[in-house]
Design a protein around this nucleic acid. Structure first.
Lengths: 213, 213
DNA sequence: CTGTGTGAATTTTTTCACAGCT
DNA sequence: AGCTGTGAAAAAATTCACACAG
């Protein structure tokens, strides 16, 4: 059994996977943790420790088989299957997400989109007909959807999240500028460019007028 | 002096700021670390410890003055000034970013945008005329720009980042699906929805076929 | 030799718990 | 009495360093 694997470890796995794919594209068949470290920007010890949570993938004296490790990570991350995803909120941002081409090749496909605006409901975006948000819970249950992308305004986000979770959503990619509380068995990842920018300005303005009273 | 303030601490500050603003909107003038904890989803001890890196902001027995603390955090984060930002890459994603309305009220304004495609160069998006990417270094230097948003394809990203850094960029909001290496004095934050989704699927598919060989 | 896998050591981050101010 | 600010303790994450497999 597992599942006392630290979240920090899991968050690095997609990065390793990406690096391995890049190496494979360069026709590199074998890679050491040192070289994978250079490629992914992680220390070799860290990589070895991270992988050790899941098994033994390397050969002493040689390193890791690039393709085999990529396949293993793909399986570990659950990316050997294709995940249906729903989108809530088809405003400016939601439309951009619907037409964003990068999800599909990675195994995520948006199967339906919902909005509360009657003007938007019924229209088509990227070959998907927008449904009224009132139908979202029913849709989730009937189609066994586990992943939702949230692109609604901050005010409506919390309530909607509660509903989604009720209906069976287990993973939320949240674009609303809030940090919602969700139950332990629900995953949430926030995409928040303003927050990211605000983190960086601290370092830019460090005249750092500190020295406490 | 300061600047041995952990990054984890700095990353929580914008969250506190947001919570304080929400409290202020509800006309709450005074808040305890316990209540701010509920609002922001951080433990009270963590909040107090975090703030202690920057000074003493509370009153024993009472808590924190909401407005005063919000103002202090705004200053600490360098958000009491307005930051000019440039955008590199005006494709599908870049256009969405240009028309994204949330940066401006938070003190970030996009002053110019650049692209390599001659078809795009010269056109106007959101009242900004797209310039050729060849002029980006000159523009950064002449206008003393410190922050760049990167929305170019993965392949072009690394090289461009090196150029930006050379020209004086100190903070990069990166939408390209790579994890670039930058010098220590340069901040980078990655916005990577696919990575975020891939992190979550691990938890969804935990049949967790582990138990090592 | 080379480079993995891993306990042990170190460092970082979080939480505890309480003295002291209001 | 209530709640901050903070050293000290605990927990978590990273790095070290080396036995051992190929």
């Amino acid at each position: 059994m597992s599942l006392d694997i630290p979240d920090v470890v899991i968050e690095r796995l997609p990065q390793y996977l990406r690096s391995l794919r890049a190496l494979k594209n360069r026709n590199i068949a074998l890679v050491s943790s040192a070289d994978l470290g250079i490629e992914s920007g992680v220390t070799p010890a860290q990589i070895r420790k991270d992988l050790s949570y899941f098994g033994k993938f390397g050969k002493q004296g040689q390193g890791y088989n690039v393709k085999a490790l990529a396949d293993d990570l793909t399986r570990i991350l659950g990316l050997d299957q294709s995940w249906p995803v729903i989108l809530a909120g088809v405003g400016r941002l939601g439309k951009a997400i619907l037409t964003y081409p990068d999800f599909t090749p990675e195994g995520f496909f948006i199967v339906s989109a919902f909005d509360s605006d009657p003007v938007i409901v019924g229209t088509d975006v990227a070959e998907i007909t927008i449904r009224p948000v009132e139908q979202i819970n029913e849709y989730i249950k009937e189609n066994n959807i586990r992943i939702a992308i949230l692109a609604v305004p901050g005010e409506s986000a919390s309530d909607l999240i509660d509903q989604l979770v009720q209906s069976g959503i287990r993973a939320i990619l949240n674009y609303a500028p809030i940090t919602p509380k969700v139950p332990d068995n629900v995953q949430i990842q926030n995409i928040d460019p303003v927050h990211s920018l605000q983190t960086m300005t601290f370092h830019l303005s460090d005249i750092t007028l500190n020295t406490n009273s």
